[in-house]
Simulated assay, not measured.
Amino acid sequence: MGDKIKVISWLSTVFGEQPVPQFEVNTRTLDVLSQLAHSSDARCRDTALLIEDMRQKTSEYQADGAHLQDVLLQGVGLSCASLSKPADDYLSALVDNAMVLGVRDTSLGSLMPAVNKLTNEFLEAEKSNRKLERELRALRKRLGATLVLRSKLQEDMNEIVKTQAVESAKVDERLLNMDFVTTKAKELRVRRERAEAQLVARNMDKSITHHAVVQLSEEVNTLKQEIIPLKKKLEPYMDLSPSPSLARVKIEEAKRELAALESQLEMNVDFK
């Protein structure tokens, strides 16, 4: 119950005059809001302490300033109003430098370490800058090589695309030719089957087919080759005298054999 009252009080403080938004009140939400309230109170206390410390330091600085003004006025008779324009400018520049360097005062004991620290930071920054420049040059070099490689790859890709287009056109042409040949083969097969059916219907003799004619031609050539040696056998008898009876018998037999072969040859040729 105490946590709930504390949370509601903290929410009222946070929102001020605005109404506190509605939320589901349960153990989880109360724990979360209680932790937020505790953290907020701790931060507010730290901020208050910091503000009080700054106020105290401001008072100290103002007291130191008044003391230094009194010293200058009483010791050397100087005041801010009596300073010349260049002296006032120098003093303002010195104060600005002290504020930039973040020192407590403008003494050499405070300014020199701050200047040395700033110089070291500047040298480190220059060193880091040189390192970054080297890395940048290396990156530019790699970037140039990458761009060249990218350009080469793009050219190769374009060539591949062109080659693929040409090959695709060739493939399409081959497919068209294949379709034409397939269609033509089907047409010829149908025509052949139709012609065979017509020949069967007309009772065509298979002996006059192309295959049979080729076979007969081969047989004729074989018979011609067989006649050649028979003619050579007759040559010795062609010069003999017709008177001997034996020669006449042999010649008649050879003539009959030759006539039979020629008759068979003529029959084959006529048949062809």
Rank of each mutant, 00 (worst) to 15 (best):
K4F: 14
K4L: 15
K4E: 12
K6I: 07
K6S: 10
W10G: 00
T13N: 11
Q22D: 14
Q22A: 15
F23S: 02
T27E: 15
D31M: 06
S39F: 11
D41Y: 09
R45S: 09
R45C: 05
A48Q: 12
L49V: 09
L50Y: 05
I51G: 01
V71M: 11
L72W: 01
L72E: 00
L78Q: 04
S79A: 04
A81V: 03
S82W: 01
S84R: 05
D88F: 07
Y90I: 12
Y90A: 12
L91P: 00
A93I: 06
V95D: 07
M99C: 06
G109Q: 05
V115D: 02
V115Q: 03
L118M: 12
E121P: 00
E124T: 13
K127A: 14
S128H: 14
N129P: 01
K131R: 13
E135K: 10
E135C: 02
L139A: 08
L139M: 07
K141Q: 10
R142S: 11
G144M: 14
T146E: 11
L147A: 13
L149R: 12
R150I: 09
D156S: 08
K162I: 04
E167C: 09
S168E: 04
T182I: 09
V190E: 13
E196A: 11
A201D: 03
M204Y: 14
T209P: 01
H210Y: 08
L216H: 02
S217I: 08
E219D: 07
E219L: 04
E226Q: 08
I228Q: 12
I228F: 04
K231Q: 14
M238R: 12
S241L: 07
P244N: 13
S245L: 13
L246F: 09
R248H: 00
V249C: 07
E252Y: 05
R256S: 13
Q264V: 06
N268G: 13
N268W: 07
